Simulated assay, not measured.
Amino acid sequence: MEEFQQVAPVVSSLTDEKRVAFYKKTYTHLAMAVLLFVIVEWVFFQIEPLVNFAFSMTQGWRWLLMLGGFMLATNYAEKMAHKTHDINKQYLGLLLYVVAEAFIFIPLIGIAMMIAESGGGNILNQAAILTLSLFTGLSGVVLITKKDFSFLKSMLTIGFFIALGLIVAGMLFGFNLGLWFSVGMVVLASGSILYQTSNMVHKYSEDQYVGASLGLFASLMLLFWYILSILSND
C-alpha cells in the first residue's frame, strides 16, 4: 500500500470549495487515465508481434514472469506518484502505470474480442458497464457518508498476499483457480475501492490529486479484470 507525504493540509480539513476542487481534479485525472488506457490498448492491438508476445507470456512460468514484471513496474509507478513533489514525475508515474495495465490486459481483452467475434456477445461493454456501476456506487458510499475505511488496509494486504500465493500455486501445480476465486477478487477489489476513496477523503493533501487518481485507477482496473474474467468464463 502507498505511503503519503503530506506537504499541505489533508483534504478533509479544507473548506468545502477547496475539497470539491480536489475531488474534481482527482476524478478528472482518473477519467483521463481510463481514456489513455483505452487508447494505449487500441495501439497495442495494432502491433501484432506485441500481441503475440503478450499471449505467449500467459503460458506456465512465463505468466509468473509477466506478473512479476507488472508488479515491479506498478510499484515503481506508485512510488513516483506518491513520494515526489515533482508534478512531472507524478504524471510520469501515472503514465507508466496505465501502460503497464494496458500491456497485461492484452490477453484478457483479446479473449473477450474473440468471444464477441464468435457470437458470444460484447462482454467488454458488459464488463465496463458493471465495473463503472459498482465503482460509482462504492465511491458514492464513501463520499456521502464520509466514513473512514482505513481499517481495511490490513485485511486488504492479507487478502492480496493470499491471492498472490494462490495464483503462484496455480501456475506451479497446474490447477485452475476457478469462478469463486474471481468472485473473491471482485470482493477484494471492491474493498480496495472503498479504501482508496476513503484515502482520497481523509489521507491525501491538496496537491496529491495525481497520486489519489492512480490509487483509484488501480482499484478500478483490478475490478474490471475480474469482472471481465468472470464473463469470459461463462
Rank of each mutant, 00 (worst) to 15 (best):
P49L: 14
N88L: 13
G68P: 01
L30G: 01
M57Q: 08
Q59F: 08
L36Y: 00
A77E: 01
E78A: 15
I87D: 14
A31M: 02
L72P: 01
H29F: 11
P49S: 15
I87C: 03
A81C: 06
F22T: 01
G60M: 12
D86S: 07
E78T: 14
V38S: 11
K79G: 12
H82S: 14
S56K: 10
G68I: 11
T58Y: 03
F45Q: 12
D86W: 00
K79M: 14
T58K: 04
V38A: 13
F44D: 06
Y76A: 15
N75T: 15
F37G: 00
M57D: 02
A31F: 00
A77G: 01
V20I: 12
W63D: 07
M80E: 03
Y27S: 05
V43Y: 09
H29R: 07
T26K: 01
I47W: 01
Y23Q: 13
K83L: 15
A73N: 06
A73T: 13
M32R: 04
G60K: 02
T28C: 06
M71G: 14
V40S: 02
V40R: 05
A54T: 00
L72S: 09
K83A: 14
V20E: 15
V34W: 01
H82P: 06
L14S: 12
K83I: 08
V20S: 13
F45L: 08
F55I: 05
H29W: 13
A31T: 01
K79A: 11
F45K: 06
M71K: 09
W61T: 05
L65R: 05
K18I: 09
H85Q: 09
D86Q: 07
A33G: 04
R19V: 05
G68E: 12
W61R: 12
H82F: 03
I87T: 15
N75G: 15
R19I: 04
L14G: 09
V38K: 03
A33L: 10
R62F: 00
W42F: 13
G60L: 10
K79E: 13
L72I: 15
N88H: 14
H82T: 15
K24C: 14
H29I: 06
F22R: 02
T58H: 04
I87Y: 10
E41M: 07
S13L: 13
F45I: 09
F45T: 11
F37A: 00
V43N: 10
L65E: 14
M80T: 00
L50W: 00
N88S: 15
T84C: 11
T58M: 11
L35M: 10
D16G: 12
E17G: 10
A21G: 08
V51T: 02
K25E: 05
I39S: 06
E48A: 12
T84N: 14
D16W: 06
L14P: 03
F37S: 01
A54H: 04
L67M: 13
A54W: 07
L35C: 09
